[in-house]
Amino acid sequence: MKQTHGFTLVELVVVISLTGIVIAVATPRFANGDIFETRGDAGLLSSTLRYAQKTAIAQRRQVFVITDTAAQPQTVKLCFVSDPNCPLAQAVINPETDGPYVMTLSRNVSVNPSNNSLGFNGLGQAVPNVAANYVVTNQKNNAQTFTVNIEADTGYIR
């Protein structure tokens, strides 16, 4: 009697079908984009704060970071005055668009500033001279948070 090696066609079809079902169920758990939205917006916020600080140093005047938490999606504006409405004549210009500097957060992401009137002076120090932080949270999954901190005396952003 001759021995054959290998698998039957039925065995192969069953294994491929089961593998497909496992992949279809497991993939959404690994490919969840919420953490990427939250991390990305925290990075953009950190960059926006650094841009505000560098603009204050370059212009030798105060630049304020204004967070509009009532808007959906939330926005972060840079302005030369601490007015929440930020008149167009006082807005910091975005070099990419030549318009007012406005960062719009992702739809599911919110930011909670400890000081909504945070600014930077011409030396790059935080105004008022107190530590501040911005907590970036994903509204779908509140466990996904990132914190951007600003140190008091130096204005160092981390």
Score class of each variant (00 low, 15 high):
98 D>H: 05
10 V>Q: 10
19 T>C: 15
111 V>C: 11
72 Q>C: 03
10 V>T: 14
45 L>E: 01
25 V>P: 01
46 S>W: 05
141 N>L: 15
93 I>R: 11
103 M>K: 02
50 R>H: 11
86 C>V: 07
2 K>M: 13
110 S>H: 02
30 F>K: 06
26 A>C: 13
54 K>S: 13
71 A>M: 06
158 R>I: 08
135 V>Q: 08
102 V>F: 08
72 Q>E: 07
124 G>L: 06
80 F>D: 01
38 T>W: 04
46 S>I: 06
3 Q>G: 12
60 R>P: 01
121 N>F: 13
26 A>I: 12
133 N>Y: 10
14 V>F: 14
45 L>A: 01
51 Y>M: 12
49 L>N: 04
126 A>L: 11
37 E>G: 01
20 G>C: 09
139 Q>N: 15
118 L>H: 09
72 Q>D: 09
53 Q>R: 12
67 T>I: 07
145 T>K: 10
130 V>A: 13
39 R>Q: 14
63 V>F: 02
102 V>Q: 07
153 D>S: 12
11 E>K: 14
25 V>R: 14
75 T>K: 10
29 R>S: 03
37 E>V: 02
138 N>G: 09
101 Y>G: 00
126 A>P: 03
139 Q>S: 13
83 D>V: 06
107 R>Y: 07
145 T>G: 08
82 S>G: 09
65 V>I: 12
49 L>S: 00
144 Q>E: 04
22 V>Y: 03
140 K>I: 12
127 V>C: 05
62 Q>S: 11
109 V>I: 14
32 N>V: 05
60 R>W: 05
4 T>H: 14
83 D>Q: 07
62 Q>M: 05
96 E>N: 12
85 N>Y: 11
58 A>C: 05
21 I>T: 10
54 K>Y: 10
33 G>K: 08
38 T>G: 04
108 N>D: 15
84 P>D: 05
130 V>C: 02
121 N>S: 06
49 L>P: 02
142 N>E: 12
13 V>F: 09
61 R>F: 02
124 G>D: 00
70 A>Q: 09
99 G>M: 08
4 T>F: 11
157 I>N: 01
118 L>G: 03
